[in-house]
């Protein structure tokens, strides 16, 4: 363990921890855009600058490991002035379109601009404008909003192991590129979208569906594979408009393309809306009374005539524990047969 002083208060952290981690551990806020707990440090955004006694100039706390007896100052007029300047430089080339940006309300950059009160910008100059070229159906990439924090590049490589994107070009022309600048063609897990601190990466399905206002968040479990990722449905007007996952879940906030982007089946026009009864090979809409009455009558009739074992039932690995419990109880106790199974063996 290493003991250091942050803003005059002693803190003890594990060896190898960064100054930023030590500060956050002690509940001290340091702004940052590129640092992310899942990713290796980058030191790209320069917002987490701190002063360390004995060093001639401020250093990025996300890339500086702690050492014994270190004395750190996380905020001072000089540091705050530097941070504000860094932010102004980032914003000097950022579209001022928070009004219509999907990320408004959940944008770290917007929040920092608010915190530092940046309305007018001292820095004027050339702006990056890109021809839009992205044929993929999942991820919206607005490169003008990109601040080169590198989180997307790092999560795609370090966590997802896909390496679909990388920094391309140099200096002012630097941008996040796919191979040969083709359309994005990857696993579309959307991990990059989840860590983007601005509106540069969003879900195409999210467009104009709603942001924060009037949106209810409901925590649940993903309905696809057996991993059981914890997901959060974002709901507006009885419609799921977005799916996300928090970092403090068993799946550590990670999702796959199905969990994150395959939720529109819920509101598909193909959903069954009413019971159907087949007559002469054609389905006719029916009420619950009629449909359930018919089922009760037929099940009882077949049971009386052929015995309960002439009835078989398949339950579902898609349904809840409670529904499965009730279903097999119904088949065993009410119908009277053990002919109940589901797709575990399929």
């Amino acid at each position: 363990m290493v003991t250091l002083k942050i803003n005059g208060t002693e803190a003890v952290v594990a060896e190898g921890a960064t100054v930023l981690e030590a500060a956050r551990n002690a509940g001290i806020y340091i702004p940052s855009l590129c640092q992310h707990p899942k990713l290796t440090p980058f030191g790209g955004c320069r917002l987490c600058l701190v002063e360390i006694k004995g060093l001639p100039r401020p250093v990025t706390s996300c890339t500086t490991p702690v050492s014994e007896g270190m004395e750190v100052v996380t905020t001072s007029p000089t540091i705050e002035r530097l941070r504000k300047t860094v932010l102004e430089l980032i914003l000097s080339d950022h579209p001022n379109d928070c009004m219509v940006c999907e990320q408004a309300g959940t944008c770290t950059l917007q929040e920092l601009a608010y915190e530092y009160g940046i309305r007018e910008n001292r820095f004027e100059g050339e702006r990056r404008i890109y021809a839009k070229k992205d044929g993929n159906p999942f991820i919206e990439r607005e490169l003008e909003k990109c601040i080169m924090c590198g989180r997307c590049v790092k999560i795609c490589d370090e966590v997802q192991g896909v390496e679909a994107i990388e920094f391309g070009y140099r200096g002012f022309d630097t941008k996040i590129c796919t191979s040969f600048e083709d359309d994005l063609d990857c696993e579309f897990c959307g991990q990059c979208v989840s860590v983007c601190p601005t509106g540069a990466l969003t879900g195409k399905l999210w467009s104009k569906q709603g942001r924060k206002m009037g949106v209810k968040e409901v925590d649940s479990t993903c309905p696809y594979c057996g991993t059981g990722c914890t997901i959060t449905y974002h709901v507006k007007n009885n419609e799921i408009i977005r799916v996300t996952s928090n970092d403090d879940t068993p799946n550590e906030g990670l999702l796959c393309v199905k969990g994150r982007f395959a939720y529109k089946y819920v509101s598909s026009p193909d959903r069954l809306r009413t019971p159907l009864i087949k007559r002469d090979g054609l389905f006719f809409e029916a009420g619950w009374e009629e449909a359930l009455g018919l089922i009760a009558e037929r099940l009882q009739g077949i049971k009386a005539e052929h015995g309960p074992d002439a009835i078989a039932a398949l339950s579902s690995a898609r349904c809840t524990n409670e529904e499965n419990y009730a279903f097999q109880k119904f088949i065993r106790a009410a119908v009277g047969t053990n002919n109940v199974d589901h797709c575990a063996r399929l």
Partner: peptide, 19 residues
């Protein structure tokens, strides 16, 4: 064994199994 369906574990626990 990695379970293939969201609740294949639960459907088995809840005994949607014939034996």
């Amino acid at each position: 064994p990695l379970r293939g369906q969201n609740n294949v574990q639960g459907a088995s626990d809840a005994a949607c199994l014939p034996n």
